[in-house]
């Protein structure tokens, strides 16, 4: 359980880090909190030639309000810092709830917000939260910056649109609309463990008892985090009746996820979980929105 040999670089600025990533190309790998990469290296499942450690790049760790009422979160901000941040708690309570389900406190003290998104584990919380909250990602390279929406960022298990010489530098969350309720639902074998199915949902009401927008993100049930489209198609402009929610939940479970069979559960069982959890998440989010 010792990693294979690798070169190690610890730049202290973004500029220096981008220089190194450009120089290394496909040989380089960014090390953020290391909570996924290091175990993978110890198992020798990951054998990067060189690590570019961002832990000394202090300028990548921050939480700043944006002009429109959203937040910008630096990629190296620790999960536990986001979890405890006052602005995050005020503006995105659902994000706090989501982060609390990431492993255990000790891991959240090291794990980083941007690192988990760039790692793109299909069973991880933050890629799904980014989809749900319609996050926008600032990506830097020596050539400059580009912006990619969360919906365009994830392309498969542990795969994103990031090029080897690029880094995810900042995550911008747009403001949460008024009259929005949210819910986090998961079934996992153990507290802090991987979910067998998980759903995060927001529902924005229009003030007349009808749904303005319903968003449902799923993870651990496909090749990457997923944003279901059916809920909004069916519920937007409608009164969210139990029947309508049930219809949406059944549809999503059948058509908008792809859970496989593993040692902990069959595909049938996990689709059943998606069904139950989507129903519970939407029902709960509607309740929250009405408060």
């Amino acid at each position: 359980m010792k990693p294979a040999p690798f070169d190690y670089y610890a730049p202290t600025s973004v500029e220096e880090a981008l220089d190194k990533l450009t120089e290394l190309g496909y040989s380089g790998k960014v090390l953020a909190g290391g909570q996924s990469l290091i175990p993978a290296m110890n198992f020798r499942m990951a054998r990067p030639t060189a690590l570019v450690d961002l832990n000394k790049v202090k300028e990548l760790s921050y939480i700043k309000p944006t002009a429109d009422g959203g937040l910008a979160i630096g990629t190296m901000t620790r999960d536990s810092v986001v979890e405890e941040d006052i602005m995050v708690n005020e503006r995105y309570p659902i994000l706090v709830k989501t982060i609390k389900h990431i492993a255990h406190k000790q891991i959240r003290n090291r794990g980083t917000f941007g690192g988990a998104i760039a790692h793109a584990d299909p069973a991880a919380q933050l890629p799904a939260a980014a989809l749900l909250l319609d996050a926008n990602f600032k990506i830097l390279s020596k050539a400059g910056e580009r912006w990619v929406k969360a919906t365009d960022f994830f392309i498969g298990p542990f795969m994103t649109v990031l090029e080897p010489e690029e880094m995810l530098a900042e995550v911008v969350l747009p403001p949460m609309p008024a009259n929005t309720g949210a819910s986090y639902q998961q079934v996992s074998r153990q507290k802090g463990g991987y979910a067998q199915a998980a759903v995060i949902s927001t529902v924005t009401m229009d003030g007349s008892g009808k749904v303005k927008e319903a968003r449902v993100a799923l993870f651990s049930v496909g090749e990457s985090a997923l944003l279901a489209s059916k809920p909004n198609q069916v519920l937007a402009g409608q009164v969210p009746t139990a029947e309508a929610i049930e219809e949406v939940a059944a549809y999503v479970a059948k058509n908008e996820c792809d859970p496989g069979t593993d040692i902990h559960g069959t595909e049938e069982y996990r689709r059943n979980l998606v069904h139950v959890l989507v129903r519970r998440a939407l029902t709960d989010a509607v309740q929250q929105a009405k408060k």
């Binding site: 079934v187 074998r189 067998q196 902990h264 559960g265 049938e268 069982y269 059943n272």
Partner: peptide, 8 residues
């Protein structure tokens, strides 16, 4: 008996 088994 895991939940996945119990379900079945």
């Amino acid at each position: 008996m895991s939940p996945g088994k119990l379900y079945h």
